[in-house]
Design a binder for these strands. Structure first.
Lengths: 204, 204
DNA sequence: TTGTTTGGTAAACACTGTTTAGTACATTTG
DNA sequence: CAAATGTACTAAACAGTGTTTACCAAACAA
């Protein structure tokens, strides 16, 4: 019976159609302006239809959040060719900062917004995307330890500390909290801080 | 002519009445549920009245944000008696983590939300509260340098790096991104990471 | 050809921040 | 003191928001 399969396929296509429209509006106009009605308008369906494919807005935003993680992981894949593990870790940091500063709305969705987490919570699922990204960091950190770069053996704690630092840096910048230094040297300040942090982790 | 003064005083009292109601709702029910109508209900005035005392919701939230900074700075004042500058810096970190984890809504308002920053932007003002808090950190860092704890002389960069780290740690926790480690050792993980970070800055 | 399932929607519900027009009262002026 | 002005306040409307309900028409199965 191929009819059920076709329906399943059509259902998936519709989910994708909605997600594409949502993604377009989200990236072009930001989260604030991404309303269910606007998405419905874009695909020329009624707002209620969206609720036949996504249980609520949180689920829809979670869908965008998954795509955002795919995009970030793709950026991370660029560092694979770097042989020296410490150089690879440093480059991973650069890529993270670059991704965050160039995709503010996505970064917000991935690491700050409640919506995608609430979608996971009500499905009793774990934050798999975050875990996979963190794993990518863990692996590089483990490689650094193995190569003798760090004396400290706790991969998890080192990784957490590195992520905390770089996430804090990016978030301070994205949320406009670096504008307090009146000058326009925000990105320069980030580079300087990052350089110092690299020096710091060299010593552990 | 004391009549103008009285009116000025009454205006200030009304602003305070609104802020108190807003603060109460914000702390008890969170940002999401802090609506103009709810605040108006609480003080038994119409919603439109609030707009005679605050130009918009951003201004009102900025008012709460100022109070939040006062509260945090008060917590920071506890560290003054500590003589050793490095011990003072460590304790400042502890107080920061404590404040953030125990006042999630306030922390959000102070360091993540757009509203208070937009209120400042449209008044062409600088983020003075943030700057003062950062100054508190700068002073302790400068004391550490003077006492010979750090070889690195750039107070600004060191302070920025420390703030980034601790802000990142608190934010990851507050935004539920630490729940990916299924176990319930979130606070323990924070303590471990913080301990490692202290080790790291000892070496700069 | 029935009967049932399915995909889609109009309209409503209960909210949101904000603005406008108008009222009742306090204050100032002639 | 009375008339004119100024001020504090609000009801109602505007333009949105996420979400649910009741209903319709077309597709499917018997």
């Amino acid at each position: 019976m191929g009819i059920a399969e076709r329906k399943e396929r059509e259902k998936e296509e519709m989910r994708e159609l909605i997600l594409r429209a949502a993604s377009k509006i989200f990236l072009e106009e930001g989260y604030e302006k991404t309303s269910i009605r606007k998405i419905a308008d874009a695909i020329e369906y009624s707002p209620a239809t969206i609720y036949l494919y996504y249980r609520d807005k949180n689920e829809l935003l979670h869908g965008l959040h998954v795509e955002a993680f795919q995009k970030m992981m793709q950026e991370f894949s660029k560092i694979a060719p770097i042989n020296d593990p410490f150089a690879r870790l440093v480059e991973m940091g650069h890529q993270y900062i670059k991704f965050g500063t160039q995709n503010p709305e996505l970064y917000n969705l991935m690491f700050l917004m409640d919506a995608p987490m609430e979608a996971l919570a009500c499905r009793n699922e774990i934050w798999d995307d975050g875990l996979r990204a963190f794993d990518a960091l863990r692996i590089v950190v483990a490689d650094c330890i193995e190569a003798g770069y760090f004396k400290e053996p706790d991969v998890e704690t080192i990784s957490m500390t590195i992520w905390s630092y770089i996430h804090g840096l990016v978030t301070i910048y994205l949320k406009g909290r670096m504008k307090m230094f009146d000058d326009d040297r925000e990105l320069e300040r980030m580079q300087q801080s990052f350089a110092l942090f690299i020096k710091m982790i060299k010593a552990i």
